[in-house]
Write a protein that binds this DNA or RNA. Structure first.
Lengths: 221, 221, 221, 221
DNA sequence: CATGAATGAGATTTCATTCAT
DNA sequence: GATGAATGAAATCTCATTCAT
């Protein structure tokens, strides 16, 4: 990513992607680790394998992350951070509540599909009962932008009389998340049992439509 | 450890512990293994630990299940089998489609909450990309009773004109499952970020109600 | 030591000193470990080295002793146990107090000289601030036979009027130990600075004599 | 870490921290290293830990002391040097031999108690069989002031007829050292087994008295 | 002189599995 | 069927030391 390779440095020495490049090395490890942890889980991952796919050595992993668990924690925190950032980019001002809410649902559905590694990390972390989650302080849902966004939309809809009162943003977020998450997390077993149809483009379009429909009907009921 | 075998008691009588339980040892292993696999995953589980919590020794695990993976496969197949059996017990004949469909949703929501270990095994299996799933032949969704049940209800509703046509039972099942599953699978991370409110009795009642509502609105739209 | 090698077992298979001989293997490890720990200390010792000098593998060390520290603890406890046993063998009944007390001093002086590994383990353990000592319950000085022996001798001497009253057995033991211990523990540095004379046979005889003299004079003063 | 260097302050003036301390960095390292080596031994000590507690970096340790072993050697030599200096300060001229000798014993007993780190370094060095001791030339007991002091006292006592002839100063020093050293070196294990009484103020006073008594009786016998 | 980054070699420990009885 | 002992292969982690700037 932030590579600083010098083409002139063509000596016989073993090729190093970065000499003395702390962030380069650190990020390189982080990226590789994310992929492998997402694929194999914490206990299923070999530090060796991460090192092998890196431009550095196993030793550097311990240098920067103390131990395997430390690396896993960083990967997880990083993944959440990036997801937050993607959510922060959502721009919905000016839209009518119903339109905006569907946009949130669609965005979540699409974004989850795009972020398979993130979903897998969350699956894995749930198997661990959230033991390695970043400090609650950094994660608190209060200042989560999705929640704030949904809150605003919902409040506006209620004010306009188009949404029924009595619900919370977290509830709405929960429903949208559940449907969008399951679509990625359980694809393997679900398609094993019920076939792949729901996962081809047409099937996905139908599901996506349903998700938005259900959410809107829920608030408009 | 908790063994009750008496060296002098070398008669032909079956060992007391398993008197009414011919496959005693095997089932004992299976039960213990299910619990531990559900808690720690495949790679996170130690054969040692399973053996220790069993009334038998490690040797027997290999005797009955060949290897750790074999045991895991059996545990998984067993768990699915039991879930199927629970679903088969659903009796809805005679009810109007809308009532029946809500009952299916409620049942699924409740049943998932009760079957945490099963859900965890499914989570784990999805991390493994469904690599260890029982043969598709045994699992095929065609002969799944939930699907057949939903199919009947839906067909009836469409025939009566109360449900809109154009949907499939698998789609409906997908939505119900997603919402019911996420409620269990992601409780750890979700409550870490957004608090525990949705998981106390009141919160769960609300979510359960929403799930039924959304499904019904989806078919009645 | 407790070897059970069978000369008839001359197959092509790799030679094993003991197959399926738990105590053999365990004691073998313990003996080798004691020697090496005594020589190099806890952190200075390589598990590898212990294994290499054993008839088994590194793996067995972990099988029986959990980890390096566990092995060290056992070695230490074992060494203390053996020292106690040697002390228990002291037979002094019937001797006049002064003679008996000198015998205790002489025995301790000689026994320490013979038990270099034990002394070294105690040195090492003191460097660790006695962190790995066996449970105080097993070690309590109350039921230590040396203390009881000295107590009896001293009480008798006081009763007879040959020893002055007002001292404790632990104090006497302390002095005898200090002199006997230092003779072994500090030989290396002391002889480095002041030469080897005190450590040749003649020097040792003189020191030994002094130790007994001083103790007797102390109680007879 | 607690560095006070200012990048703009690139004058020729010596760094503030070491204004009156030309060998500042070196001595800083030495002091920290002494403490840690005394606590954990040679193999138990991490160069990393020394560096961390120093005002400099690891690099400087290697710059000044070549390697860990070199640093350890210097620490040890330094500790002996300081002990010698303390002994040199003893001023006993004019006192009657018996009084002077008890003063030497008392001084040694007290001085050892005060110099725990030194005693620990000696313990550690004895575990290493005195492999890292400073050159014998620097250390030779001949020019050791304690030995010379004791020699003088003893000679005077013999000349006066109050001390019996036939002993050497090294022997006397050996006894005093043994008792004073053990008091510090074996406190951990001894009190673990026999309790702490001998190590409280009263107990120590008794032991100290005994040590002087025994030495005096030994020469006066 | 000074520093943070980097590292090879090796140490400790783990784990599924098999063996001997 | 049953059991405790045994094990090879591999995984995690540590440490003194050197390098690049």
């Amino acid at each position: 990513m932030t590579q600083i390779t010098d083409p002139e440095d063509d000596t016989d020495l073993p090729r190093r992607k970065w000499k003395q490049n702390p962030n380069g090395v650190r990020n390189d490890i982080l990226e590789v680790a994310r992929e492998i942890f997402a694929k194999k889980g914490l206990s299923g991952t070999r530090v060796e394998e991460i090192a092998a796919r890196t431009s550095t050595s196993k030793r550097m992993i311990y240098y920067y992350f103390t131990d395997k668990e430390g690396l896993y924690r960083e990967v997880l925190a990083d993944a959440y951070r990036q997801t937050r950032e993607a959510e922060d980019a959502l721009e919905l001002s000016g839209l009518p509540p119903a339109v905006a809410l569907r946009k949130v649902a669609d965005f979540t559905f699409d974004n989850h599909r795009r972020s398979q590694d993130f979903i897998r990390l969350v699956m894995i972390e749930n198997v661990h009962n959230a033991r390695y989650m970043p400090d609650a302080s950094k994660m608190s849902g209060e200042n989560s932008s999705v929640i704030r966004i949904i809150e605003e939309i919902y409040a506006q809809g209620v004010a306009q009389g188009t949404f029924r009162p009595g619900m919370t943003a977290v509830e709405l977020h929960w429903h949208i998340s559940a449907l969008s998450y399951f679509n990625v997390s359980n694809r393997a077993t679900f398609s094993h049992i019920f076939g792949r149809q729901l996962f081809d483009e047409e099937g996905q379009a139908i599901l996506r439509q349903h998700v938005g429909d259900m959410i809107l009907m829920l608030v408009q009921a």
